[in-house]
Nucleic acid binder design. Sequence first.
RNA 1: CGGGGUGUAGCGCAGCCUGGUUAGCGCGCGUGCCUUGGGAGCACGAGGCCGCCGGUUCAAAUCCGGCCACCCCGACCA
Length: 573
Amino acid sequence: MRMSGMLIPTLKEDPADAEVISHKLMLRAGMIRKLTSGVYSFLPLGLRSLRKVEQIVREEMDSSGAQEVFLPMVQPSELWLESGRWEIYGRELLRFKDRHDHECCLGPTHEEVITDLVRRDVRSYRDLPLNLYQIQTKFRDEVRPRFGLMRGREFMMKDGYSFDASEKEAEDSYVAMWLAYKRVFSRCGLRFRAVEADSGPIGGSFSHEFMVLAETGEDTIVACTVCEYAANMEKAEVPAPPPSPKPEKLGTPTTVKTPGMSTIEQVSGFLKVLPEDLIKTLILTSDKGPVAVLVRGADEINLVKVKNHLHATEIELADSRTIEELTGGPLGFSGPLGLQGKVKILADYSVAQMCNAVVGGNERDVHITHVTPDRDFTPDLYGDFRCAREGDTCPRCGGVMTLYKGIEVGHVFKLGTKYSEAMNARFLDAEGKERPMIMGCYGIGVSRTVAAAIEQNHDEDGIIFPPALAPFEAIVTPVGKKDPQVDETAEAVYKDLWKAKIDALIDDRDERPGVKFKDADLMGIPFRVTVGKKALAEGKVELRNRRTKETELVELTAIAKAVKKGIKNWTTE
RNA sequence: CGGGGUGUAGCGCAGCCUGGUUAGCGCGCGUGCCUUGGGAGCACGAGGCCGCCGGUUCAAAUCCGGCCACCCCGACCA
């Protein structure tokens, strides 16, 4: 393509309303423009990158046996009432009425539509397994859209759904998608990890998130430095530490006045003890009743773990009134002593090892020191209820765990029979028995993947696209406008690159070299072929790598080959 | 939804507190000259419902009230 005729409105300055780097750079490179909050137009350059991701996804889905379909974006309320999600989905689901007063919504996801489609036309186990996917715009009316394409309301998503006749086959479908996703993100040239995610009531390892590693990620990943184990923070297991003997001599519980000291920092500072010698007592309410959870003062409670342990669907920190009713003391002074029998007490494994700890006194301005678990109180159960920390032990291999920030770009999830039961998607098995299909769902945030690639690959000059996602793989930059030989050579090089099936752009604008170089860098084109008088005198052109900034002189006749080689050997550190 | 902030030319901003000529600056844009290896220079020029509605005033970008939009923090979130 010729740059002179293209709409690539680059900007010198950062737009004021962009915060994260991918958002700033996509706006500056002329890839996207905002229409309204969380809704973006794709300009030619942005669309080309989006299409690159789509194409990779398409190829990998097709080659793993999935079939592409295209489902409606406008959906009738009936389907959502049937699945039960019309009531529970909340305001993220954009609802409206058509001219006949019919309730509709914009599809935030397509379980209902796909299940409806399949149940109408699939009756026999002979038609299974079936794996259908689409690449389409989704709309989720996010409470707070932010960070450009990272969390938009309207975004491009690949969503796929598998239908199987047996658990075994459903697992096969899941694994096939898991492998396809690994290939997709590898081909995109991204540094990523597939991490175990919370799968709620289904349990097991049937939910994986694909995380692009980037400092600006909203999610925290816990990964082993030795083995392959990686999980998101909600899910990351923390194994019970080996039992350690308690000292012979233990202090006696002593009541102390701690006026106005309700936080861990205040109490530990006031009593001159370390936060890890405090026991934090959190009162929670859930649909399974109230519960008290104990963790060490330095640890964070993991509500998802508690929720799963209780088999609850809702859980939250109790309000001050509930705390006073349950413990007799105000918020900030709860402790395990005297709570036994009143409320179920769960304690993190690490609490069992503590001795001479400080706990709340269940009374205003009172704490109790020298409390030792299992002597002064006994929890109903010890378990894994805290968030993992840097340096924790790996639950698989005993290695050391470390934390990363990540951007979720993909999610594979075993759905089981949740939708097939609710919506009656059944088939006849070999024995002629009617059974619900077993489903899985698989998503890739296509537009988010482009943004994540930029978060991971940029420098002070702009984007550094991996060739697989770059809007163009190479840009031909003639410099020295007055020289017809330069222009003619640049044209010839440009045509050579196309002949070699390289996605090439030629900067044929009447601009000074500096402007062309800056724009090429900003757009993140991986390779720049500079055609200038000096090198041309020797029959050569310059080939520059956007990432390494290294330049080599290449014979005119060998330039296409050199670019090909560069693309093939591209590495992201 | 709670808290904070911002709306002035395509982009980035000043002016507002302390009301008063034709509302400024940088970038970008157009024309001409000049220049051509890292966002050149000079000259001329186009471009503004000062977010919207109302109020105060002889007079409002500026003061007051309401509304809207957008951004950030939090809560929320498959």
